[in-house]
């Protein structure tokens, strides 16, 4: 059951250039079956091109891709029913309702018409079944397009920035949908430029910048390996900067208009020292995030 299983996705040293621009510059990764894998990075990092090569929509200049043991390029009809793809734009037929969109896409795979309603229920759009696609909200359209990618019950699902341009509430609704898909045993490969989201959703992430993968691991492992200080934030006025710097284990203390921020790599003794002084009001503890990992890897602030 374990070692003999074929990985869902294997990408080996794929490269793709457009003229001088190296869009994908030697990317390798493996995604196990049932894994939720995220490709992260700012716009223009090469995420979409990587995904399109893996899906079989583009040919890599060099390198090898296998999906479920098969080569996706050139167009491989045997593989197509086993992969589901949501493209970056919302691709729908004109003037069809949500249910009709799903029925039409489903029929391309020979799926029964009843599947449409199951899918609508999965993404929470059953009450919008008879609404035309162009009258749905942004979040609803995203969910519908994900449902269209899933309508034929594929083994691997590719999602390109499914949460881009959504309001926070719609994003969170979508997270529930994505978790529900993973719970069905699907392998999910998705791209995002929201690092916080990837940290919450993904089993493993690859951080990309300028066509290369800079780091790849479980989000928690990446953050832990960073050796970045923990930030303890206090209300301003409870403690002076000098007093804070005097506490054992404190590396630095900075003050702005509203708060005092203490940096430390030994948060436990610092917190107990603060507790002794009775200065825990409004206290926040911020550990490192993937954004710090990105900063550490590139030397640049992360900008989506």
């Amino acid at each position: 059951m374990t070692g003999a299983r074929i990985p869902a996705v294997v990408a080996a040293d794929i490269r793709k250039s457009y003229g001088e621009l190296k869009a994908v510059d030697g990317v390798s990764f493996t995604v196990a079956e049932g894994e939720f894998f995220g490709i992260l990075g700012p716009n223009g990092a090469g995420k979409t091109t990587t995904l399109e090569i893996v899906e079989g929509l583009r040919k890599a200049d060099t390198g090898q891709v296998t999906l479920l043991g098969e080569n996706p390029w050139p167009r491989n009809p045997k593989l197509l029913p086993r992969i589901g793809v949501q493209l970056q734009a919302s691709s729908f037929f004109e003037k069809l309702t949500a249910r009709e969109q799903l029925q039409t896409f489903g029929s391309l795979y020979g799926v029964s018409r009843q599947r449409a309603d199951e899918m609508l229920e999965l993404v929470g759009l059953l009450d919008k079944a008879d609404v035309q696609e162009n009258k749905l909200s942004g979040g609803q359209r995203q969910r519908l397009s994900i449902a269209c990618a899933l309508v034929h019950d594929p083994d691997i699902v590719f999602l390109d920035e499914p949460t881009a341009a959504l309001d926070p509430q719609a994003r969170r609704n979508l997270w529930d949908v994505l978790r529900a898909i993973q719970a069905r045993g699907k392998t999910i490969v998705y791209t995002t430029h929201y690092l916080d989201e990837a940290e919450i959703l993904c089993d493993r992430v690859a951080i990309m910048d300028r066509g290369r993968i800079l780091a790849m691991d479980a989000p928690a492992t990446l953050v832990r390996g960073l050796d970045a200080p923990t930030h303890v934030v206090l209300q301003k006025g409870l403690l002076t900067r000098e007093a804070a710097r005097g506490i054992t284990g404190v590396e630095d203390a900075q003050e702005d208009e509203v708060s005092l921020t203490i940096s430390t790599r030994k948060p436990a003794p610092v917190l107990s020292a603060l507790a002794e002084r009775g200065t825990l009001d409004g206290l926040q503890v911020r550990t490192a995030t993937l954004e710090d990992v990105f900063l550490d890897l590139t030397g640049r602030e992360y900008r989506a």
């Binding site: 793809v85 493209l87 691709s91 729908f92 896409f105 391309l108 795979y109």
Partner: peptide, 17 residues
């Protein structure tokens, strides 16, 4: 034009049709 712009063509190409 509209199917190409909205990537419906690509989406259809990814289906076994």
């Amino acid at each position: 034009v509209s199917w190409r712009k909205k990537q419906v063509l690509r989406r259809i190409r990814l289906a076994p049709v």
